[in-house]
Amino acid sequence: MPAETTIDPATAFAGIPRSPGSAKSDPILVAEHINRHFGGLTAVDVEHLQVQRGVITALIGPNGAGKTTFFNVLTGFDRPDSGEWRFDGQSLKGMPAYRVARSGMVRTFQLTKALAKLTVLENMRLGATQQRGERLVNAMFRPRWRQQEKEITERAYGLLERFQLAGMANEFAGSLSGGQRKLLEMARALMVQPKLVMLDEPMAGVNPALKQSLLGHVRSLPDDGMTVLFVEHDMDVVRDISDWVVVMAEGRIISEGPPTSVMGDQRVIDAYLGAHHDAPLTVEEEEQVLREAEQIEAVRAEETRE
């Protein structure tokens, strides 16, 4: 990891307006006019978004707001109907997903994609880029890749230790619990040595004990020079670890700012409460909406007291 100077979130966001699409002091990712329609439905309609380098940005919004679709578009897993976006100054428009990843922007998935019939260690090794042994001409001749494989394995064990998975290194990934799979997917993404880590609901379905350690890992990523953009539903988590929050609703970015100020924004509360007015909700969805709205209210109450 390049030892970049750690960016202090407070100074990074000094003087940044708390309005949708505001310009950042040092953006790693800039997206403009991104549109994605599914038939008549506009899933993503982002006018402008800048993601600050070296900090943790949360992307929140009610179910169906278009967060996952936005992630898919940015990472080359989906094509937008229109739009431009640059990562670290390089345009990613039309770039296939694997080249986006190689350029340093690596994502995880909302539905965890652990490679079940590969061992945990093999999952990790797969994450390393520029492997000589991954080329067909070299593959049959072990001496050509043995040394590199050793280095990769060491790096993999280092990350597995950190994510408390080292003991499971030789287990099939399919035998891990849901939470451990999330850990594995994140650790595997770090094997790519990304500049920007994009996590789609990394805490979903993770038990409270693991959640704390997962939170710790996410929080430590900027110290290693990485930028984090993550989607999350749990407002406590968002408030805990994010330096900046972007709120999406019905495909649009409706609010931006530090966690506490965003959660007090009337537009955000309306979005969470009103998002499903026209669509029937399942019981779980309704519960979640209410829970999130409650959390937002609680934060706001706290704010006004202070």
Binding site: T75, Y98, A101, V106, L115, A116, R188
Partner: peptide, 16 residues
């Protein structure tokens, strides 16, 4: 083998 399990995951790790 990774592709057999889940090709999108492999793509997300930068493999063609």
């Amino acid at each position: 083998k990774g592709i057999r399990e889940d090709e999108d995951a492999v793509r997300a790790l930068g493999k063609n």
